[in-house]
Simulated scan of single mutants.
Amino acid sequence: MIMFDALEQYGLLQHILSVDRFGRGVVNRTYLAKSKNETYILQLINNNIFKKPENVIKNIESLVPYFKGKDDFLMTKNLLDSLTGTKHVKAEETYWRMYKIKPHMKIFKKIVADEMMEEIGKAVGRFQKVLLDFNPKLLVNTIANYHDAPKLYQQLYKVINRDYEKAVPLFNETKFLEFQEAQFTLIPHLLKTKQVPLRVTHNNFRLSNMLFDENTYEVLGVIGLDAIMPGTLITDFGDAARYFCSTSREDETQLEFVHFNLDYYRLFVRGFLKETKDFITAAEIDNLVNGVKVVTLEHIIRFLTAHLDPKSVYPKEYKHQHWDRAKNQIQLYHDIDAHVKEMNIIIQEERRKL
Rank of each mutant, 00 (worst) to 15 (best):
E181D: 00
V140C: 07
Y318K: 15
L44Y: 01
E214I: 10
E350N: 09
E284Y: 12
D81C: 05
L170N: 12
K52T: 06
A338M: 14
R21Q: 10
E61C: 05
E38P: 01
Y153G: 00
G125E: 07
E284V: 14
R302V: 15
H202G: 04
T94G: 03
N203V: 08
R206I: 10
I107R: 03
D133A: 13
S248R: 04
G224V: 13
N344Q: 14
L13A: 10
K68L: 05
K100V: 08
N161H: 06
A283Q: 14
G224L: 07
V222N: 08
T76P: 05
Q9P: 01
Y146P: 00
S248K: 10
Y157H: 07
T94L: 04
I143D: 04
V219L: 03
Q331F: 08
A33C: 11
L225M: 05
K293M: 15
N145Y: 03
E349W: 13
N55H: 11
G25N: 01
T86Q: 11
D236C: 02
Q43V: 04
F127L: 08
K311H: 05
N204A: 15
I120H: 03
D335Q: 10
F73W: 04
L32A: 06
F171A: 08
E250Q: 04
L80P: 03
M116Q: 04
N145K: 06
D335R: 08
V313T: 13
D324K: 09
E252V: 11
H320E: 15
Y40D: 11
V168Y: 10
S82N: 03
I16L: 08
L190D: 01
D335T: 09
L139I: 09
I2D: 02
D251V: 13
S312A: 15
L225G: 00
F244I: 12
F127T: 11
Q155M: 02
G271D: 11
T201S: 12
Q183K: 07
K51E: 09
V295M: 12
L7V: 09
R325P: 08
G85Y: 04
H307C: 08
L63I: 11
P136C: 12
K194Q: 14
V269H: 14
H147T: 07
L308V: 10
T276C: 12
F67G: 01
F244L: 05
L255K: 14
N209T: 04
N328I: 14
E256F: 07
R270F: 12
I2Y: 05
N203K: 06
K129I: 05
F50Y: 13
L152T: 00
P150S: 02
D81M: 08
T216G: 12
I301F: 08
A91N: 01
L7T: 09
S248Q: 11
E256H: 12
D114Y: 00
K77H: 15
P310S: 12
P65F: 05
L12A: 05
F184G: 03
K316W: 11
Y243V: 03
K175E: 13
F272A: 06
Q180C: 11
T276K: 07
L273M: 09
V292N: 05
E317W: 11
F108C: 04
E252Q: 13
L177G: 03
Y40P: 05
E275I: 13
I41H: 00
T281F: 12
Q348K: 15
L267P: 09
I347R: 08
Q348D: 14
V124Y: 02
L32F: 03
K166R: 11
